[in-house]
Design a protein around this nucleic acid. Structure first.
Lengths: 223, 223
DNA sequence: GATAGTTTCATACAAGCGTTTGAAATGCAA
DNA sequence: TTGCATTTCAAACGCTTGTATGAAACTATC
């Protein structure tokens, strides 16, 4: 029991260091030095380095998932069981984008940590991410309720593309800023959310003839 | 001079091992064992481990970029200097998707290596990717020629989203298969290319009122 | 066939890593 | 205070890593 002071000092020091310098070159010795605790404390309180990383990531991603589901739930309740497809996408990408982008990410260690977790790919985090499928299925189900007639595969592709745009924007925010020479305003988070939502909705409801055969088969070498 | 046998044995063994097991847990000793050469040969021929990885990645990504630019050039020539926006997107995402997806990726070591390079994030590769901006600028220029009146920022967002969908599909192909329970056919590469192109085109030409103010500002807590 | 330059080889090095150990310190109940 | 369990600590362990060394083997030129 006791004060738990050591335990939480390790957690916050680790999160800050990982956020700043990535998982690759932060050692346990860096962490305990920054937390002013003994080296053995990490293994005493967490068991291993991987379990420390896992705990950090689980905490943060549970929070995001909870936020997502809350938004989804209110959207469905407001619509009497069926949320608009735009609201569903907003609930899916909004929390993540708001958490990781914008001025908050300058100050928030948690956000910068989650960006790192999205860019680098370390075993304990990958293991957790693989269990995220169940969470996404809830959004697929909501989409099915929202657009009952829609082709199933198209639904999954829509979900997939929405996540693609959100995550890629987080991963490559620096490159996009450099590429566009500042024209793309990465600080206007709400604008980005609406942009991603708009494209996602269009991808799903725009090209109607798309589901079975592609609108246009190109004259490409047909292997 | 000599036979170069050792050098290329190292290259192909390294590419295969990295493709199979990732950069994280493949050591120089694994590589030289698989290539049947001496440990010191790596540093003799490449200077360091990082330079070996860099050479592998540069070779493959130069090939992809060349393919992209070739497709772009033929599309622009066919259109008399202005390619259709769909052809531009096809030139951008086609080579990468064809290289990394589909049945080829079962057999092609190069493709699986590039997938790893896209998933994991190791310093020498990151350094090279950062120089990729100049290459992307050529596509931005082609888009500008294709859609002269278009808002500059929208162009970059379109480019960004196209890459997002392509790369995310490569990165998360397993998760998408699992999530959709096989409904999304990841082997139909040409179908995927057309899907990504169609959504990218729609993102750019679909919602006209989008450029300045979002179509609809949500009633969200305005922080 | 001697010589100079290139390439291979076994081996060692130094450093860094996560983890373990066992004793000292601390907190808490009786 | 005594006794027991929890927590901290300094130190070291064992292992792996990328890299360096210097001699041996090879190759090609004269």
């Amino acid at each position: 029991m006791a004060s738990d002071h050591t335990r939480s000092a390790i957690l916050s020091a680790a999160e800050r260091l990982y956020a700043d310098r990535g998982f690759g070159d932060v050692t346990l010795r860096d962490i305990v030095a920054s937390a002013n605790v003994n080296l053995a404390a990490v293994n005493y309180h967490f068991g291993s380095k991987d379990e420390l990383i896992a705990e950090l990531f689980v905490t943060r991603s549970l929070a995001t998932n909870r936020e997502r589901l809350n938004e989804l739930k209110s959207a469905e309740e407001a619509g009497g069981g069926r949320a608009g497809i735009d609201a569903i996408f907003r609930a899916l990408v909004g929390p993540t984008l708001r958490g990781c982008l914008g001025p908050s990410s300058e100050g928030s260690t948690a956000a910068r940590f989650m960006i790192r977790a999205s860019i680098e790919s370390v075993p304990p985090i990958r293991r957790i991410k693989n269990r995220e499928v169940d969470h996404l299925r809830k959004f697929a189900a909501a989409m099915r309720r929202s657009l009952p007639g829609r082709n199933e595969a198209d639904l999954y592709w829509g979900l997939h593309f929405a996540l693609a745009m959100a995550h890629h924007t987080i991963r490559e925010r620096e490159r996009l800023t450099k590429l566009s020479e500042g024209l793309c305003d990465l600080d206007d988070v709400q604008g980005i959310v609406e942009r991603v939502v708009a494209v996602s909705v269009m991808a799903l409801t725009g090209g109607e003839a798309k589901s079975k055969a592609p609108t246009r088969l190109v004259a490409r070498d047909g292997r």
